[in-house]
Design a protein around this nucleic acid. Structure first.
Length: 115
DNA sequence: ACAGTGACAACAT
DNA sequence: TATGTTGCCACTG
């Protein structure tokens, strides 16, 4: 199981209507400095069931837009699930996700590896 | 093996 | 608040 797959396993656990950031995912994977790699992993997604739109900047800003995806698209997807996006910014205080506990992370990875 | 790259983040102006 | 700089790391050719 490579790093990308681990990232996807975590992202799939982000609840609908909530958001988190690249660095937080890197920390959950015990690789706190790999925030850029997390972004790279999401960029590599094609079409899948990974809710990539729920991953934004630590500042609460929506900046994604590689390839076919645009930040307009990301903002639209977030609004569809109830996240209030204003001027490409989201209130982390209101919509921020607490993240998974270490045991939950482990369970997510195990399930993904099995799946 | 090695250098280039990018959907980041923290810090300094 | 807004740029600019620097450190990072996994992946790719």
């Amino acid at each position: 199981m490579n790093f990308y797959e681990q990232v996807y396993a975590i992202v799939r656990r982000i609840p609908r209507g909530r958001v988190t950031n690249y660095g937080a995912i890197a920390r959950m994977l015990e690789n706190p400095r790999a925030a850029r790699a997390v972004g790279y992993a999401l960029r590599a997604l094609d079409d899948s069931d990974v809710p990539w739109q729920r991953v934004i900047h630590s500042t609460g800003e929506v900046r994604a837009g590689a390839g076919q995806q645009t930040r307009e698209r990301q903002a639209a997807l977030l609004r569809e699930e109830g996240v209030d996006v204003i001027n490409y910014r989201v209130s982390m205080k209101t919509y921020g996700w607490d993240g998974l506990t270490p045991p939950e992370v482990e369970a997510a990875l195990v399930e993904a590896a099995r799946g």
